[in-house]
């Protein structure tokens, strides 16, 4: 089965799980209705709860379901579907109050029914999860702290939701509904066990050692790891991995980075720019140090996009996965033509500039550097990756090529639009989101 068919299958299965509580209610024997708004509110509540339950699976990084989409897209979808859940979650109490405003009288601290308090607490937890995710940087919450808070609040929200649903009891006291909710909750529990226990145990049994740490231009570091008494991992050029340093895989301090090394090499390399809490300490890594790698992930790879040639577009450290593809092509003696657009602030900061020049000799590679702040007498492209830049360098020769774009989200959106306006089919433009959270 191809990636498209598999993608449709997993989308259909996911939709089925979310809608399953309503299918059961529509198909099975249920108690008499309580009024349109009241029943609509109950249905909205069930949908919100089902979406919340599926969040655990969406972020569990199950390799098979994630493969057709790429994990970056699954995480992006996770954020979108959370907004859909928020809509149903808000509709649930608002519809109830619209049906009977006197219900507000029941909301009194310490004297409300326990299931009502559980529902309100679940709602508060969910809102807290949303706000701390959407405004993580604005609230100045570190990535590692946020991940722990996110996991804790999510589990708490789900537990409180179950207490609320069971406490209310309406529409879940049939055998079929009880079975369904038991299955959904078991799924959540198994997912949590997989993520927090089985996967860390597996990573612990397959450690890596740091071979070298090399400073690159643009405040970036290339970290090379070697499998420690195991075969390592095989990956497609352009994929990425979750890396744990300085702690065990149980610590929830892993971070996603693109692999920048050749897929043909046994050692694996990450090129990491000093940007945040974790990355600013990367220069302190010592050779011989233990590391754990959860890989490979991502659908951004030439190996998944057979074509007569490629156009790569990189913004800043977005060059890392493209470098992996170029190095892999060089190792494979792949002479298909590649045109690389590489945008950076200054020439001095440009990561991999010398390595790229060296690769020109081993590949059919053309490079267009685009500098925001060019040096004096710079003859090349300047400013941003605009439509005119692409128009000057793309020709009929590039028809049928696949376009791979990696960099900041704003750059990706602008490049996609520019290429599309120049007549590049959207199906030929492939992107990788770097900002997962």
């Amino acid at each position: 089965m191809g990636f498209v068919a598999r993608g449709i299958f997993w989308c259909a299965l996911y939709t089925g799980v979310i809608l399953s509580p309503l299918f059961f209610l529509l198909a099975g024997p249920v108690p008499a209705g309580s009024g349109f708004l009241w029943d609509l509110s109950a249905a909205c509540g069930f949908i919100a709860a089902a979406i919340m339950a599926t969040m655990f699976a969406l972020t569990a990084r199950f390799k098979r379901p994630v493969a057709p989409f790429g994990i970056d897209l699954v995480y992006y979808f996770h954020r979108l579907i959370a907004l859909v859940a928020l809509f149903f979650l808000l509709a649930h109490p608002l519809l109830l109050l619209a049906a009977d405003p006197r219900l507000l009288l029941f909301v009194r601290p310490r004297s409300s029914p326990y299931h009502l308090e559980a529902g309100i607490a679940a709602f508060a937890c969910f809102i807290a999860v949303m706000l701390t995710s959407l405004w993580r940087r604005r609230l100045n919450i570190g990535y590692d702290t946020w991940r722990k808070l996110h996991a804790l609040l999510s589990v708490l929200a789900m537990v409180l939701t179950v207490v609320h649903i069971q406490g209310v009891g309406h529409y879940v006291d049939t055998a079929a509904s009880s079975l369904l909710w038991s299955a959904i909750l078991s799924g959540c529990l198994v997912t949590i066990l997989y993520v927090r226990l089985f996967k860390p145990l597996r990573l612990l049994a397959r450690p890596y050692r740091v071979v070298s740490i090399v400073g690159e231009a643009g405040r970036a570091w290339t970290l090379t790891l070697r499998p420690d008494r195991h075969a390592g991992v095989s990956f497609l050029p352009g994929q990425f991995a979750w890396l744990t340093l300085w702690s065990s895989p149980f610590s929830m301090t892993e971070h996603p980075f693109s692999l920048s090394s050749s897929a043909e090499s046994a050692d694996i390399g990450f090129t990491i720019k000093e940007l945040g809490d974790f990355t600013s300490g990367i220069s302190r890594v010592q050779p011989g140090q233990l590391a754990f790698v959860d890989a490979p992930y991502g659908a951004f790879s030439i190996d998944r996009l057979p074509a007569p040639g490629y156009v790569f577009v990189a913004g800043g450290i977005g060059i890392a996965p493209l470098m992996s593809m170029l190095r892999t092509m060089a190792d494979r003696r792949d002479r298909r033509p590649v045109l690389l657009f590489y945008a950076y602030n200054t020439r001095e900061e440009m990561t991999f500039r010398e390595q790229l020049e060296e690769l020109r000799g081993r590949l059919d590679l053309d490079i267009v550097y685009v500098l925001k702040r060019p040096p004096n007498r710079w003859q090349g492209e300047t400013g941003l990756l605009r439509e005119e830049v692409f128009r000057r360098h793309l020709s009929e020769m590039h028809d049928g090529f696949e376009f791979l774009v990696c960099g900041p989200v704003a750059m990706i959106a602008a490049v996609e639009q520019a290429l599309h306006r120049l007549g590049v089919p959207m199906r030929s433009i492939h992107t990788e989101l770097f900002e997962l959270v």
């Binding site: 979310i18 529509l26 609509l40 790429g70 992006y76 959106a413």
Partner: peptide
């Protein structure tokens, strides 16, 4: 393209869920 597709899928799931919820409420209340 991928981001747009993700948005379409999320919106479609929400729309179908809302329609089913309204259908359920309508069926329950004649």
């Amino acid at each position: 393209m991928r981001l747009l597709l993700a948005k379409i899928v999320a919106a479609a799931i929400g729309a179908v869920a809302l329609i089913l919820a309204m259908l359920f409420a309508a069926v329950q209340n004649g």
